[in-house]
Design a protein around this nucleic acid. Structure first.
Lengths: 189, 189
DNA sequence: ACAGTTCTCCTAATGTCCCTAGGTTAAATC
DNA sequence: GATTTAACCTAGGGACATTAGGAGAACTGT
């Protein structure tokens, strides 16, 4: 039977899906090779090794992140944009756990900078803040606060860090409303 | 030469130190055994295996976390307590990266509940909030917001998520001041 | 069409690590 | 001092990552 030709792109896509299924830290070359009906050594024609694969998946996930968040805030501003942004962020984190973990995989700074993916995510954050009245350096601080809060909540939720007997959805809404308030009154605080 | 007798406790302590040196995800039974001049198989007398070690280190780190944060807020309240709490949190995260990563290692819920460590951390958070005027369910939401923000910032900082050319210390101070403001005016938001 | 080149995928082999099984010696108990 | 207990060891298997080198398919130029 004719085997589908391997390409780095197809491998990275399949690896990202695999990571969502079994967890980013269980992503393995053998498992990926098995999925393509190929020996693990064969992957080295297309990838430099496991570290390379992990970094590629990380960059891919970062790019998808930027796309989804960008789409969420397109045509919206202020509270509506923040709310859509935040909900998209959290649903990606919980719905695509492998990709989410991948976004936190450390990628060598040069490589991260070379692909523009990380910058795109930050760019979307700044776009979101356009609906609020912030200028530098407040905007940078605000972006950092925003990312910290959304990321921290998603991460703690994902790793089971929240144990209290109260709806996470409700707390999440409260967090988003609080962020809205902060961004609105930033200069007064 | 007389070999120091192994104990689970000594192993976990050494493992935590090792994790700080080489990263929690590079913590390995072989490396730990080597540090004690012993074969890896010998560790199985004291530990059930790698997963067991990782979970023990996680619980140990959580306990140390609770101790340090508790000490930071002892005798302080309100802004002073929050500031000390936050700074301790961040310095632990950056100064003890292996232990910090360990605190995020997923531990089976029963085991986590059995050791009281996770509850102690949450307890310290609630103690911190005593200086602010919050009652349930606001307190739970506030704890979640607080932990999310501090954790998110620390994690993004640790994984190189912040790239803008602005002092992280400055942004951190701003984040802490913002949290103080939110906690103070919680009911008004 | 065909000879030569290139590139994909393969087999084989090495090293590291987790883990189990079973033995040996040193410590602890009676 | 004899017996039991338990710490540590050697031996070995299985999963992965990785390298080296070979066979065959696909592409190139004539």
């Amino acid at each position: 039977m004719p085997r589908t030709r391997l390409t780095p792109d197809a491998l990275v896509s399949a690896a990202a899906d695999l990571a969502d299924e079994i967890g980013f830290d269980h992503l393995t070359l053998s498992a990926l090779a098995k999925r393509f009906g190929v020996r693990d050594a064969s992957l080295y024609t297309h990838l430099r090794g496991l570290a390379d694969l992990q970094e590629r998946v990380a960059l891919r996930a970062l790019g998808e992140w930027a796309d989804a968040l960008g789409a969420a805030i397109a045509g919206r501003s202020g509270h509506a944009a923040l709310s859509a942004f935040a909900d998209t962020y959290r649903s990606l984190a919980t719905g695509r756990p492998g990709r989410y973990a991948a976004t936190r995989h450390p990628v060598p700074p040069e490589r991260l900078a070379a692909s523009g993916e990380a910058a795109r995510v930050v760019e979307v954050c700044y776009a979101l803040l356009r609906g609020y009245d912030l200028s530098e350096p407040d905007a940078t601080d605000a972006v950092r606060l925003l990312r910290s809060t959304l990321h921290g909540f998603s991460d703690l939720e994902a790793t089971g860090g929240f144990t209290a007997d109260r709806s996470l959805d409700t707390s999440w809404r409260r967090v988003v409303e609080t962020l809205h308030h902060i961004l609105t009154d930033w200069s007064k605080i």
